[in-house]
Each structure stands twice: as C-alpha cells, then as structure tokens.
C-alpha cells in the first residue's frame, strides 16, 4: 500500500514498549493516623521512601534498595502492592505540636491507602545505545551482564514499535497525551528528564536521539502483567514498565514516520567497560540486525539480548488497538508539544 492510500485508510497506529525504566516510582498517600504523625523517615518493607513531603505523602523510587534484604527494592514493593500483598510501613518523626506522634509501624495495602500514583520522571527512551564490554572481565551494568571481550551485546528499546521512534518530531505525543501505562490509562505529563532528541550522524547513519517522556497514572488500576520489578545482578533493582501510545495519522508525513522499520533505525554500539560518561563508540547497527540474535563487531559474531520484551511490546500495542476500536480508549490531543531541543546538561 502506498503512503497516500495508507494515510486515507489508517486512522491510528499503536505502539508499545516493555523495558526496564529506572526513573520510575510511586507517589503514595497513606491517610492520617490518630494522633497524627508527620513522617520524616519512611520505610516500606525496609525500603527507604522519601520523607520530605507533607505529613503522610511519600515518593517511593523503583531503584531504592532494602536495608535488610538482598535484591529487593522499591520496584518489588510496587509489584507487591499490585499483587494485593500487605506491605510493612515504618515511619519516624521528631514530633510537633500539631503532629505529636513520633513513630508508626503498620501494614498497608494498595486498596487501603488514599492514593497511589505511578509517576515516572523519565521513561520510554526514544533510542538507546547498544552495550558491549571490550575489557577482560565480566561487568555488571544497568544494561545487564556484559561478558568480557565482546562476549555479548545488549540493547533496550522496542525499535520499530517504540513510541517515540514512531513520532520522532513529537507531533502526536506531548503534554497531556493519553497513553497505555502499566495496564491502565495514564498521561504524558511533561518531557522526561534528560530529554535529548538531537539527531546525529555516525558512520553515515542517522542516529535518532534520546527523547524521553514523563508519565503518570493511577497505580490502583495497573497490573503486574505490565509493571514488574527487575534485578540486574551487581547493579541493583529497576522496574519493567509497559507503555503504549496511539499515534493518529494526521497526514502523509505522519504515515511515513509510523512506517519506520527496524532496518531503518540505527543506534550506536558503546563500550561499557569505559567508566567515563562518554563511552567509546565501536560502530553503528540497526534494530533488524540486533533482533536477528547476533551482530558483527569487526570480525566477531556477538550474540545479542534485547532486555526490552518485544513480545510484551506487541501485546501492549495490540491491547491498545483493541481498546481504541471498542471505544474504551479515547485519543487526547496534546496540550502542548514536547520540545525538539535537548534539556540535557551535565553536572561535572
């Protein structure tokens, strides 16, 4: 089908991704105790949560680590809440005249608390590099375990299904856009932190940058099918987040954007054995090559691992499509557009 005909016939295209996204967490409001407490130090199943908000509000980050349990963190608490489990809340306070209580120990459930809002400051990287390791020792990173001497390579977006790769100029995805988030309907609330959509040319290939979105939704409506705690050995805890976006086919340009294929999308191969911020780039590769199971780096055949679940990404795009056709999911025009410029600075 040509672009013209497709533009006439297709109304909306859906995208999906299910990847580990570290910059994720939940805003919780527990409800007041009697006598009341202004919680200053807060632990949920021994995982520290933020105590710098109002009396019984907190933010629990997905990567926050348990003080007592190995390989357990904020993401596991969130998953536990979603599974209906009781979570042990402990909080302390110095006490004030209006909030005299100094300590509380109790169990909470998702159902029993006032609010649980998933609020992720940076999700859904548009494009991300491929991680390899040229050193002689095994390294443990947020891109998974990397075997020495280019023993394997890991990559982490859903490529042709990735939301921001289908809308590279942010015409459909912007502030307020309704999205599929963790099994519920959520919204894009801002551009993500470190939003950097700058496109570069490397080795003659166009490398789409790293635009990101900040998203929010009601955790109480989400499901463990699309939100899961993850442990990367030697690195720590992170969280798989499932996101899907609808992209209305506004015109032929938009149709061209969403027709993007894995073989058109390139990314760079970075050497994670270098501990500096700018890592040496060993070349470029496209997502079709990555998805084939191995890539060539020099003369070496290097097996690849996605980290991001393509099966789940498809499931999300399909589910969103179904919800839209059944009228359960309504498209929402963005209130304003994501910037096309980088928000990125470094703190050196």
């Amino acid at each position: 089908m040509g672009v013209k005909k497709a533009t006439r016939e297709v109304d909306v295209v859906t995208t999906g991704t299910f990847s580990p996204m570290c910059s994720s967490g939940v805003i919780l409001n527990f409800g007041h105790t009697d006598p009341p407490i202004r919680m200053q130090k807060i632990w949920l199943n021994d995982v520290p949560a933020h105590g710098g908000l109002a009396a019984v509000d907190t933010y629990l980050g997905a990567t926050s680590l348990s003080k007592t349990m190995e390989d357990y963190g904020g993401a596991h608490v969130i998953e536990g809440l979603l599974r209906g489990e009781e979570v042990f809340l402990r909080a302390t306070s110095s006490g004030t005249d209006c909030y005299p209580q100094k300590e509380i120990e109790t169990y909470i459930t998702l159902e029993g608390i006032n609010e649980a809002l998933l609020f992720n400051p940076r999700n859904c990287y548009q494009n991300y590099n491929v991680a390899v390791n040229t050193s002689t020792r095994r390294i443990h990173t947020y891109m998974g375990t990397l075997l020495p001497k280019l023993g394997n390579a890991t990559y982490c977006t859903s490529g042709q299904l990735s939301p921001l790769l289908n809308d590279p100029t942010f015409r459909a995805i912007g502030m307020g856009t309704r999205i599929f988030l963790g099994g519920a309907q959520g919204h894009v609330v801002w551009h993500g932190t470190q939003h950097n959509p700058t496109t570069k040319i490397v080795d003659g290939n166009k490398i789409v940058g790293g635009g990101t979105i900040s998203v929010m939704g009601n955790l109480k409506q989400m499901s463990v099918d699309f939100i899961r705690a993850a442990v990367f050995p030697g690195y720590g805890v992170t969280m798989f987040v499932g996101i899907g976006t609808p992209i209305p086919i506004l015109d032929e340009d938009m149709m061209r954007f969403v027709s993007v294929c894995d073989s058109d999308i390139y990314t760079t191969i970075s050497d994670y054995s270098c501990t500096h911020k700018s890592k040496p780039v060993l070349g470029t590769v496209n997502y079709a090559q990555l998805r084939s199971g191995s890539i060539k780096i020099g003369d070496k055949e290097v097996p690849t691992s996605p980290l991001s679940s393509y099966a789940k990404a498809r499931e999300i795009a399909e589910k969103l499509k179904k919800d839209i056709t059944q009228g359960k999911f309504l498209l929402q025009e963005p209130a304003w557009q994501l910037p096309n410029k980088s928000s990125n600075k470094t703190s050196e």
Binding site: G293, L307, S309, K312
Partner: peptide
Amino acid sequence: CVDCGACISL
C-alpha cells in the same frame, strides 16, 4: 517470564 531475552546472549 516476561520474554525480555536478557538470558539469551549469556
């Protein structure tokens, strides 16, 4: 299993 494929290259 979430079919993430993290295991396959190892």
